[in-house]
Amino acid sequence: MRVAKFCERNIQFTEADKAIDILRQHYKDDVAVSVVDCFRRCLKCRVQPFCRIQLTTIEANDAETLVKQILQTV
């Protein structure tokens, strides 16, 4: 199972929390969700939701698109 790591600060400013909820409710057998302190991507952090899976950063304009991209990656 892959781990999708979300930035705590990104969650505060974007729809990343919605993506986390969707993953935890519907895809908990496919993707583990982890919230970390900071990815040091301050310019992107406040603009759009993103997460990291291993060394790959996945970005999207909204939570639903982010979830789709995460599922494609895993």
Rank of each mutant, 00 (worst) to 15 (best):
V35Q: 04
R9A: 09
A4Y: 02
K28V: 00
T65F: 05
T14R: 13
A16E: 11
A60E: 07
A4W: 03
D37Q: 09
Q25K: 15
V3M: 06
L55H: 13
T57L: 11
T14W: 08
K68W: 00
E15Y: 03
H26S: 11
L71N: 07
L55D: 15
D21R: 14
M1L: 14
T65Y: 02
V33H: 09
L71M: 13
F6G: 11
V33G: 10
T56R: 15
V31H: 06
R46G: 09
P49G: 12
A19T: 02
A19Q: 01
E64W: 00
L55I: 02
T56C: 09
F39K: 03
H26V: 00
R24G: 02
T56Y: 10
N61V: 11
D29I: 01
H26D: 14
V31I: 14
L71C: 07
Q48W: 01
D29Y: 05
E8Q: 13
T73H: 15
K5F: 00
P49A: 13
R46I: 03
V35F: 04
D29K: 13
Q25L: 09
V67N: 10
K68H: 10
N10D: 08
T65C: 05
R52V: 04
T73M: 10
A16Q: 13
R9M: 09
A63C: 12
L55T: 06
Q54P: 00
F39G: 07
K68I: 03
I22K: 11
D62M: 04
I70C: 04
F39N: 08
R41H: 06
D30P: 00
D30C: 01
A19P: 00
I11Y: 01
L66H: 04
I70F: 07
K28H: 13
L66E: 08
D17I: 07
K44F: 03
A4P: 05
R52K: 15
V67I: 08
N10R: 08
R41T: 03
Q12C: 08
R2S: 14
V35Y: 01
S34M: 07
N10W: 00
I53W: 01
H26P: 00
K68D: 15
C7L: 11
V3Q: 06
K28Q: 12
V3G: 02
T14V: 04
R41Y: 03
D17W: 07
E15I: 01
I70A: 11
V74G: 07
R24H: 02
A32Q: 11
L43I: 05
V36C: 02
E15H: 08
L23Q: 08
R24V: 02
V47H: 09
Q69C: 05
L43T: 05
K28G: 00
Q54G: 03
M1W: 03
M1N: 07
I70Y: 10
V67A: 12
V31W: 06
A16I: 05
V74S: 12
Q69P: 00
M1K: 14
T65E: 15
K5Q: 14
D29W: 02
A16V: 03
A19H: 05
L23E: 04
A32M: 06
Q72S: 10
V35T: 09
A63W: 03
T57G: 07
T14Q: 10
V67W: 11
D21I: 02
N61K: 14
R41L: 10
Q12S: 14
I11H: 02
I11R: 09
